[in-house]
Computed example of a mutant assay.
Amino acid sequence: MKLGNDWWTSPTESESGRLVMVTGRRGVEKARESGKYNIRVEITWKYSGNSAGMPDDPTSTLMEAVQNAMTDVFDKDPVAILTGIYTGDNERNWIFYCTSVHIFEKKINLALATFDLLPISIYTENDPQWLEYDEMREASEITPSDD
């Protein structure tokens, strides 16, 4: 299954009114419609941000390296698809949709094995309708025709 690798970025606000940059992935409709990617995985990294709630340069650089490691693993074995990234209000959230929590766990451990202990938490939820993805698009005013 060929996935798009076209991304958009849009500002929005957190519940506390702070800036959050939302980056979403286009071209995921085939994966969504396949019915295989029913589990949403949210990886959250809380950090001490600057006055705007954004990460400092060293933290941002480390987050980019972590993200590259994750996408490298899942690009080779697409048991999970990165669909969105939220950065702001002192946290970054990566949103994946996956086929199996058990396999995701193995792959994420492989992806992050070279890093020291990271300040992340992982949450999973069944989301076969991709409701979070739809909410992300609505919050960022991206319409389905943009896919």
Rank of each mutant, 00 (worst) to 15 (best):
V73C: 03
I85E: 10
W45G: 01
E33D: 14
T87Y: 03
V66K: 05
T59D: 11
D147K: 05
R25W: 06
I85F: 05
I95A: 02
L118T: 02
E29N: 11
T71R: 10
T83Y: 06
V66D: 08
E15R: 10
L117R: 11
A65P: 01
L110N: 08
L62N: 05
T12K: 12
W7D: 04
T61Q: 14
A80S: 05
E135Q: 15
E132C: 02
D56G: 13
T61S: 09
L110S: 12
L112C: 14
Y37Q: 07
W7S: 08
E138S: 15
A52S: 07
N93I: 14
R137S: 13
P128I: 05
T61G: 01
F96K: 01
A113E: 07
W94Y: 06
M70R: 14
K30Y: 06
D147G: 07
G17D: 14
T87S: 15
G53A: 08
P78W: 03
F104D: 07
I122A: 09
A52P: 00
W7H: 10
E29A: 12
M54E: 15
W7K: 06
D6Q: 13
S10F: 09
R18N: 04
R40N: 06
A69G: 10
T114C: 03
I108Q: 13
V66H: 06
G49F: 07
I85M: 15
D89R: 03
V41L: 12
I39G: 15
N126D: 12
L110E: 15
V22E: 08
S145C: 09
I43G: 03
W130Q: 05
I39C: 09
G49A: 11
F74N: 07
D89F: 00
L131Y: 05
I43C: 03
I122M: 11
T83G: 12
E42P: 00
R40F: 07
Y47C: 13
V22F: 12
S121Q: 05
P119D: 05
V101Q: 04
S100K: 01
Y86A: 07
E138G: 07
P78Q: 11
G88D: 06
V41T: 04
A139I: 03
G4E: 09
L117N: 06
V73A: 09
P55K: 08
V79T: 14
V101Y: 04
I122V: 13
S34W: 06
S48P: 01
C98D: 04
E42W: 01
E15T: 08
V41I: 15
G24M: 03
S140I: 01
Q67F: 06
G35N: 09
W7E: 09
R18G: 00
C98S: 06
D57G: 01
W45A: 11
D57C: 02
M136P: 02
P58W: 03
M1L: 12
N90K: 08
F104V: 12
P128Q: 13
D134Q: 07
P144W: 02
L112K: 08
T124C: 11
D75S: 15
E42H: 04
P144N: 13
N90D: 13
L3V: 14
I122N: 12
M136K: 01
L82H: 15
K76Q: 06
N68E: 04
A65C: 02
E141N: 12
E141P: 00
S34P: 08
M63I: 03
L19K: 02
N126C: 05
D6G: 02
G84N: 14
